[in-house]
Design a protein around this nucleic acid. Sequence first.
DNA 1: TACAAAACCAAGCGCTCGGTATGTTTCGTT
DNA 2: AACGAAACATACCGAGCGCTTGGTTTTGTA
Lengths: 214, 214
Amino acid sequence: MEKSTSFFDKIFIGTQAMTKHNKDRYDIILREATALFSENGYSSTTVRQIAERTGIKSGSLFHHFSTKEEILFIILKSASLITSGKIKKSIEQGINCKEQLRNTIRVLIEVVHEDEVFSASWSVLNRDARHLTNDHRKEFTKIYNEGIIKALQDLLIECKKQRLVKTDPLVLTHLISDTTFFSIRWFKKGGRLDLDQLANQIFLTVVNNDEATA
Amino acid sequence: MEKSTSFFDKIFIGTQAMTKHNKDRYDIILREATALFSENGYSSTTVRQIAERTGIKSGSLFHHFSTKEEILFIILKSASLITSGKIKKSIEQGINCKEQLRNTIRVLIEVVHEDEVFSASWSVLNRDARHLTNDHRKEFTKIYNEGIIKALQDLLIECKKQRLVKTDPLVLTHLISDTTFFSIRWFKKGGRLDLDQLANQIFLTVVNNDEATA
DNA sequence: TACAAAACCAAGCGCTCGGTATGTTTCGTT
DNA sequence: AACGAAACATACCGAGCGCTTGGTTTTGTA
């Protein structure tokens, strides 16, 4: 079992093996495409821009990917798969509901803010998922809904049962995911709060007063 | 003082008078453009699509608007101006901090869900504001930041002083705005909760337990 | 009913888009 | 050193883009 060396590794597990040289370029293309999609949007980004930032010509892009949309799909699939895995792990490792929720919120904040590529991927995910083809969108939505939203929702339903939270768990699911995922727009690292404090503020907002201080 | 007859009226106050015919077509273009931008994104929407849905030819669009981007700007400016006005009104009419916050959250939910055009405008606002030209973006950002975000922030700072809320008011500002604005993606009318209940759940989440039941 | 202004259409310009076809260079293997 | 495959460059295609132009119809006004 080899350690993952790149952000985009995971989705290749079991699909294909790549040579070193190929894989480097492949990663660069995905990284630069992610940055460009994040900055200017999928539709406004051209394959020529992606090629230029990668250091090759536009035609050569299609030696690595069959369409522009495939690049988008791989970016979104990677981001949602990795996030889904991190959430699952944080729930498995929590000793009780309270710690599971605290860990999960912290993980969501990390995912959006700690890694530059991941951060950009989430910007793209939240804006350009609609440009996926039907098949790709179906596959992506499955990962997103089942691996991220449903995991969070199940956790919050259990938190509600145990009276850790006081309000509707389905509303809280989206309140937490919306706030964390879109915090990328307003939260800047190095400001008044650090990532831990931000996660903690969100956690404290959703849990009961008595539970928070317990 | 004439009653406002159209969603896009407000921004013309003091700028120009329009004949009836002109104004009807003008409104239809904006309405259809809003729907298309909302469905497919600004960059993926063509002036030919907008013209077709309006019932004119693409060239005729430019008799009413000088550029495609101007259409986007008017949509975003209208949405942010109206929202800003509604928030201001809900704060003025609240008898205390608690009612002001409750009203404001309710207004934000209304703004996103009650009117079809407004709802679509907010989708566009949250995804395509980056495609504004520098001058237009500057003007839009001013309205958005000062009229919406800052108004909400000032209110929450006061709420914190009075111990109505327990967590950081700046985090709460974005928690509320993100949750309400993006609820358009997951909240469907006619479901388990109605708009009042949704607004109330968000309100209850952010206020103190004792205050909530008081 | 005459007329100017506003609204609209038909046609298309210049340009850029995603993607392809074909030939050339690079590289690991032997 | 020789060879085959992978990785690239070059050049280009058809389609579609935002927007313009010049001429025609519709409209409000007197």
